[in-house]
Write a protein that binds this DNA or RNA. Structure first.
Lengths: 155, 155
DNA sequence: ATAATTATTGCAAATGATTTGCAATAAGGG
DNA sequence: CCCTTATTGCAAATCATTTGCAATAATTAT
């Protein structure tokens, strides 16, 4: 049994909730998927195993996970207003979004802490969390765009 | 005539567009407003001067400004999926969002450049833009929450 | 095990934010 | 001042997500 499923089971038990087959399926997909699916994408994947699964169930499960802090929700500026769900556990991590192919690369930095401190000190606010989004061309798209524009390979 | 209005007029001229009273009104509000209004909020403000102004016009104007890079669009994670429009010109700036009162404070940092470089070097991607969002309690709400929980004033 | 209790599901209809088609209106050039 | 056509207002459409409700299925007590 994977991390998310057992975490969730525990919480469900403690609050009189029930571990259903739908939840187990969604959780195991979320846990193993190295991506940030939308609710719809998650549904499509899950339906390969449970064709009757409903989109409302997907949303309800994701919202519950969100409330339990087991997934976080992001609205990358993709022109779309669709939410993406990130099952990565508490560790703070950030996202690079390729403006060409929309792929997301996660990254880490310890500089955010400095930024938090900087802002706290200058403003008097208290900062809990923060996130960074970078936009640009991923290595592949960058390569392609250089080849296209110059006919040359990247070194 | 303010900055945004003249910038926009120029662009309109060069592309055969027309400067209408509706656009002029919206632009002047956006230019002077030190906030990040939603389309609806902007409409409400604008209707004080032009009660017949329509929400579609507001959206169409904002989308055009967005395409011209004269405003940027943000989806702060407020539980709401409503867009907020930021007329601040190109200079990169970031946002702190108070999780209690939802107020937004803008801030600046030169550390983002380091983060960009860090990521570019380690990934091979090329980064154009980036934005940071911090969440926490603004000075006022922080003060109130401390008073409420301890009965004590903040030093 | 079995039945009773009630959390959860699937479906359909509702909601909230934004977009679009279209006929009427109004900028701006001639 | 007229003409062309970009832009507007309105209503209806769309997209993403949420909600009400009767049917179903996990758990709990029997």
């Amino acid at each position: 049994m994977n991390e998310l499923v057992s975490q969730a089971s525990e919480r469900l038990r403690s609050q009189g909730g029930r571990m259903t087959s739908q939840r187990r399926l969604l959780l195991s997909i979320l846990d193993s998927l190295g991506e940030h699916p939308t609710a719809e994408e998650l549904l499509l994947i899950a339906r390969k195993q449970d064709p009757d699964l409903n989109l409302s169930t997907v949303y309800r499960t994701l919202r519950w996970l969100e409330a339990e802090n087991l997934v976080s929700t992001r609205l990358f500026a993709e022109g779309r207003r669709q939410e993406r769900f990130d099952a990565a556990l508490p560790s703070e991590h950030h996202h690079f979004i390729c403006t060409r192919c929309k792929n997301v690369i996660e990254f880490d930095t310890d500089l955010l802490d400095e930024i938090k401190t900087q802002f706290q000190d200058s403003s008097g606010a208290s900062v809990d969390t923060g996130s960074i989004e970078l936009y640009g061309l991923c290595p592949d798209c960058r390569q392609r765009s250089i080849v296209q524009e110059t006919g040359m390979e990247v070194g």
